[in-house]
Design a protein around this nucleic acid. Structure first.
Length: 492
RNA sequence: GGCGCGUUGGAGAAGCGGCUUAACUCACCAGCCUUUCACGCUGGCAUUCAGGGGUUCGAAUCCCCUACGCGUCACCA
């Protein structure tokens, strides 16, 4: 059986974004599913935009998501180095070969010339591509131009009149005409190879068997295919996964970008999303599970994943769904983990001190436990807590209910006032006991008791259990609200 | 403009020629559960698959055309 080798090859020009993370995930899943190798390398040939910080960010995000790689950057392996800028000699050898065989040539055209050429072609209604002007420059002429200080680029000589068929694992056979592709640049004037060329050498020398990447690369594939052919290498299997779209304010769907909200993995981390939720959500972007279950851990995804359930049509980034998934994972998480993820948000909001004492930690734990069913990410925590600690307002619906049930509500609240005045502090157990007493003394129970209390104390129809809320609000605020309500009830 | 890809409900999305009177999930609505609500559970929610033609006994599924959307045509990846 063929040994699967897949890779994720980002360029370190910014933080890992959602689309990249999804590509990484699909490669990871297919590799793991087939007991293969998952490799991470860096495509850092764009000197202008590449940065060490970006590389670190990408690696951190991948690790945070749980996608650890078997080979590549930082971890090493037999096919290193794993940064393109450290592999220049590999590319050089291939360039020399192509040059020697006449499959590539130096081009001295200036930017201005090229732009003029392109414009002329467009005005004639032609498909703009390089004319091949420098294809047959003599050695002498080349030398002459060189001495003039012109630094040439190297172009690949694209064979004419050929058909390139890409056997794409998700899209089927896709055919391109080589005549639609101009002689493209494989080495820039500074001597650094360009992506389309370097990627081929990397995939070949690293023994990559499958390439899963975004659809935006589909039209690049024929370029790479002709290079594979010219060099006499076999192509890996390609799978182009659909774009991720976002909906803008007008409701139009376009490629996911900043205007649709956060696009980087770290932004979601900072908003208090759980890594397993992100992974789960990402997997659902363009891939569909077989059964009705949609919640999967990374390991479960490895078992479930298969390319034939990857969709051709674009995936839409549905924030509501992400929130739902995250909420589900928050509800499942252990108290320790909830505290670990939630505490930083409480600290940032000043709800808990920088170096909390034990009782503050307990408070935080209880608060998070009380609210975990009502949040979709941890960033929502402080807001909700402040809402319960702040001023209360009753909406029209609540007031209607009070009027309809005035006697019951007031009876309950009068009893509550007495009970609260009788205690110094409040916790869930004390609150429950108070409630029990009120129930016994007034004979009011069930919805009449619970619902009117909730409505009077929070102004809400639904929400966390009041005994848990007691911890957030505390005895004094509970009492104040009770008094306020009683005063307010007079006006009804 | 050339080339390439796509188009299924309020939303995401299955479906690959008959088993589809179109799964599943989110949202919404109703009921059950819980001494309240949420969670969970049960049920409801597209006679229809962008539009038009064709192939076939039979099409969301195959072919053609039209429309719309998106991607790509860089000394960026």
């Amino acid at each position: 059986m063929e040994k699967y080798r897949l890779r994720f090859a980002p360029s370190p020009t910014g933080p890992l974004h959602i689309g990249g993370a999804r590509s990484a995930l699909f490669n990871y899943l297919l590799a793991k599913k087939n007991k293969g190798t998952f490799i991470v390398r860096m495509e850092d040939t764009d000197l202008e935009r590449s940065s060490k910080a970006s590389e670190e960010n990408i690696k951190n995000s991948l690790r945070w998501l749980g996608m650890n790689w078997d080979e590549g950057i930082d971890v090493g392996g037999d096919c290193g180095p794993y940064r393109q800028m450290e592999r220049l000699d590999i590319y050089q050898a291939a360039v020399d070969k192509l040059l020697a065989e006449g499959k590539a040539y130096y081009c001295f055209c200036s930017e201005e010339e090229l732009a003029a050429e392109k414009e002329a072609q467009q005005s004639r209604g032609e498909n703009p591509h390089y004319s091949g002007k420098c294809r047959h420059l003599s050695k002498e002429r080349q030398e002459e131009l060189r001495t003039q200080g012109i630094k040439p680029v190297i172009r690949f000589r694209v064979p004419e009149g050929e058909e390139v068929v890409i056997h794409d694992l998700v899209r089927g056979d896709v055919t391109f005409e080589t005549d639609g592709i101009g002689d493209f640049i494989i080495v820039k004037s500074d001597g650094i190879p360009v992506y389309n060329f370097a990627v081929v050498l990397d995939d070949v020398t690293m023994g990559i068997t499958h390439v899963i990447r975004g659809e935006e690369h589909l039209s690049n594939t024929p370029r790479q295919a002709v290079i594979y052919k010219a060099l006499g290498y076999e192509m890996p299997k390609f799978a182009h996964i659909s774009l991720i779209l976002g909906r803008d304010e007008e409701g139009n769907l376009t490629k996911m970008s900043k205007r649709h909200g956060s696009t980087s993995v770290i932004a979601y981390e900072q908003q208090g999303f759980l890594p397993e939720a992100i992974v789960n959500f990402l997997a659902l972007l363009g891939w569909a599970p077989k059964g009705e279950e949609e919640l999967f851990t990374l390991d479960e995804l490895v078992k479930q994943f298969s390319l034939d359930r990857v969709s051709k049509s674009p995936a839409v980034f549905d924030m509501e769904k992400l929130k739902w998934i995250n909420g589900m994972y928050i509800r499942k998480a252990s108290a320790e983990r909830l505290l670990e993820y939630g505490l930083p948000f409480l600290k940032k909001a000043g709800l808990v001190k920088r170096n909390p004492k034990v009782n503050e930690m307990i408070w935080a734990m209880l608060v998070i436990d009380a609210l975990k069913n009502y949040i979709s990410c941890f960033a929502e925590l402080p807001e909700i807590i402040k809402k319960y600690q702040g001023d209360i307002t009753y909406d029209a619906g609540a007031i209607e209910e009070f009027k309809a049930n005035k006697e019951v509500v007031v009876t309950v609240m009068v009893a509550m006032k007495e009970k609260l005045e009788g205690v110094k502090t409040l916790d869930a157990q004390i609150y429950k006991d108070l409630l029990k007493e009120i129930q016994n003394e007034t004979g009011i129970k069930g919805r009449d008791l619970y619902h009117s209390l909730r409505l009077a104390k929070t102004g809400e129809e639904q929400g966390p259990d009041l005994d848990k809320l007691a911890v957030i609000m505390g005895r004094d605020l509970m009492l104040k609200r009770t008094n306020d309500f009683l005063e307010f009830a007079e006006t009804l």
